[in-house]
Lab assay of single mutants.
Amino acid sequence: RMRTAFTSTQLLELEREFSSNMYLSRLRRIEIATYLNLSEKQVKIWFQNRRVKHKK
């Protein structure tokens, strides 16, 4: 599987969303994925990984 290289714009938006809410509803995940031109799965995994990073 290929590793996703997020653009700086995508990362900025993902981080902004994360700062306001660490957990996404499915609807919000779809909205963000569509807006950032990513798959729902990519957004889901990014949030999972970001939560782990946040815990450390």
Rank of each mutant, 00 (worst) to 15 (best):
R29Y: 04
S39Y: 04
S20L: 12
L11Q: 11
Q48C: 06
L38K: 03
A33G: 04
A33I: 03
Q10S: 01
S20V: 07
S20F: 10
K44G: 13
F47E: 00
F6Y: 11
S25E: 03
W46C: 04
K55N: 12
H54S: 09
T7R: 03
Y35P: 01
K44P: 02
F47T: 01
R16T: 09
S25K: 04
R28V: 01
Q42D: 14
T34E: 08
S19A: 13
K44T: 14
K41V: 15
Y23C: 08
I30E: 05
A33E: 01
I30S: 07
K55W: 09
F18G: 01
Q48A: 14
T34C: 09
I32H: 03
M2K: 12
F47V: 00
R1L: 12
L12C: 13
R50G: 01
N37R: 09
H54T: 11
S19K: 10
Y23D: 08
W46V: 01
I32L: 08
R29A: 09
Q42C: 11
Q48G: 06
K55H: 13
L11S: 09
S39H: 07
M22W: 06
F47G: 03
L36C: 09
N21Q: 05
R51G: 11
V52W: 09
T34N: 09
I45S: 13
K44E: 14
L24R: 00
V52F: 10
N49I: 07
E13G: 07
Q42I: 09
M2N: 11
R26F: 14
S39A: 08
A5Q: 10
S20H: 10
N49R: 07
S20Y: 11
T4K: 11
I30D: 04
E15H: 01
F18M: 02
R28K: 06
E40P: 05
M22G: 08
L27W: 08
K53V: 13
L27R: 07
L36T: 06
N49C: 08
Y23Q: 09
S8T: 13
L11N: 06
R16F: 04
Y35C: 08
N37W: 04
E17N: 01
R51K: 12
L11H: 08
I45W: 13
R16L: 06
E17T: 02
Q42W: 01
R28T: 05
I32R: 02
K53G: 12
S20P: 01
K55V: 11
R29K: 05
K41G: 14
R29G: 06
R26Q: 15
F18W: 13
T34R: 06
K41P: 15
W46S: 04
R16S: 10
R51F: 14
E13I: 05
I45F: 09
E17K: 03
E31S: 05
Q42N: 07
T34Y: 05
R1C: 11
E31L: 03
Q10Y: 03
R28M: 00
A5L: 07
N49W: 11
E13T: 07
R3L: 12
Q10I: 03
R16H: 09
L36I: 06
K53A: 14
N49K: 11
T4D: 13
L14V: 02
E17G: 03
R28G: 01
E13M: 05
S8M: 08
S25D: 08
I32E: 04
V43L: 03
R29V: 07
R16G: 07
E15A: 04
N37P: 00
L38M: 10
I32P: 06
Q10R: 01
E31Q: 05
K53N: 11
T7G: 04
T9P: 09
S25W: 00
L11W: 06
L14G: 02
E31C: 01
A5S: 14
L11I: 10
R29E: 08
L11R: 05
S19Q: 13
R51S: 13
S19M: 12
R1Y: 07
R29W: 05
E40M: 06
L38V: 11
N37Y: 05
I45Y: 10
L12S: 14
R51E: 12
A5H: 14
R29L: 08
K55Y: 13
L24H: 07
L36N: 07
T9K: 10
R50M: 10
Y35M: 13
A5I: 10
T7N: 11
Y35Q: 10
L38P: 03
K41H: 15
I30H: 00
R3T: 15
R50C: 07
E15Q: 02
N37K: 09
T7W: 02
Y35R: 08
W46A: 02
L11A: 12
R1F: 15
K55G: 11
N21I: 04
L11G: 05
R1A: 09
F6V: 09
N49Q: 13
H54C: 09
K55L: 11
